[in-house]
Design a protein around this nucleic acid. Structure first.
Lengths: 150, 150
DNA sequence: CATTTTGGTTGCAACATGCTACCAACGCGG
DNA sequence: CCGCGTTGGTAGCATGTTGCAACCAAAATG
């Protein structure tokens, strides 16, 4: 069969993450969830995604434990989609993508939305990759250890 | 026409990043590049991706300035694909996905590959999202500022 | 040279995406 | 409790994209 390749059995955590999130739409749904969207219609208007796609993505995100479907907070009979702890743990991923985009996907001076901390209203500090003992490391300072199956 | 939706004009840097990278294969190609892969065949064997897909992805990554095609380092007439500075800047994205995958996409004790710093052979410190003044922030402490077009 | 390796291209079938139309349940004013 | 707009979907179709396998030319190798 010619199904899209899955990585859910890969030993590489990057590949598994990629597989768990599903596709780019899913990531943008998660982004919107961080930004406060909860209702089907909110995601749909914000993303401009087709409703059948959104339905499918919300379902897989819920199935994957990234989102959770809960009763609407306004007391209506509708449901809302909120991030689980597992979903909230994607925060550094979103921040990393955001910072990369700001640096490399906009022409200088081109306006873009900005993520700021609520207290001071100032942009976040760029993410730093640190070794266990706190030194900054860049790609060349690292190596992947492939664990043998136990 | 029914083309896949593009985000290259979005004002959100997350969406632009998503668009610039292209798809999950591209991200895994970048991961392999961080891990030392340079040649077409290396990527192909490592990923198990179809060659026509790999060809297309390498082309768009080069066109997007993430990879660069350079003469082979062993003096042969073939070419190699190496990360540009823009590509290397994706390091925190890969690390964030890797750490999320380690935490949330493996059952406890299940073996997985590991990214360690070369000097001490120890895993990296988990990424922390920090405010400008150095406080740790979590999603609820942040808000997205949508800039008006200037 | 002859053969293998490398780095692709081409064609096809199946699957995923996007669009539009449709629809049922909910909510709200009267 | 009735009519009507809103919300949250489903269904069907056209087209785009993915994956596979076959093929191929240039470069390496012996």
């Amino acid at each position: 069969m010619v199904t899209r390749t899955r990585f859910d059995d890969s030993e590489c955590p990057v590949a598994r993450s990629v597989d768990a999130i599903g596709d780019w739409w899913s990531l943008l749904i998660v982004r919107d969830a961080f930004d406060g969207s909860r209702r089907f219609g909110e995601f749909q208007r914000s993303l401009g995604v087709a409703k059948n796609i959104l339905t499918a993505r919300l379902r897989t995100l819920v199935a994957g434990g990234v989102l959770e479907s809960v009763p609407a907070s306004d007391g209506s009979a509708y449901r809302e989609y909120v991030l689980t702890p597992k979903g909230k743990a994607l925060f550094p991923v979103i921040v990393a993508l955001r910072q990369w985009g700001e640096q490399h996907a906009f022409t200088p001076g081109e306006p873009h939305s900005e993520l700021v901390d609520r207290r001071r209203e100032r942009p976040l500090r760029p993410l730093e990759v640190l070794s266990a003992d706190g030194r900054r490391v860049d790609p060349d300072d690292t190596v992947v250890h492939k664990l043998p199956a136990r």
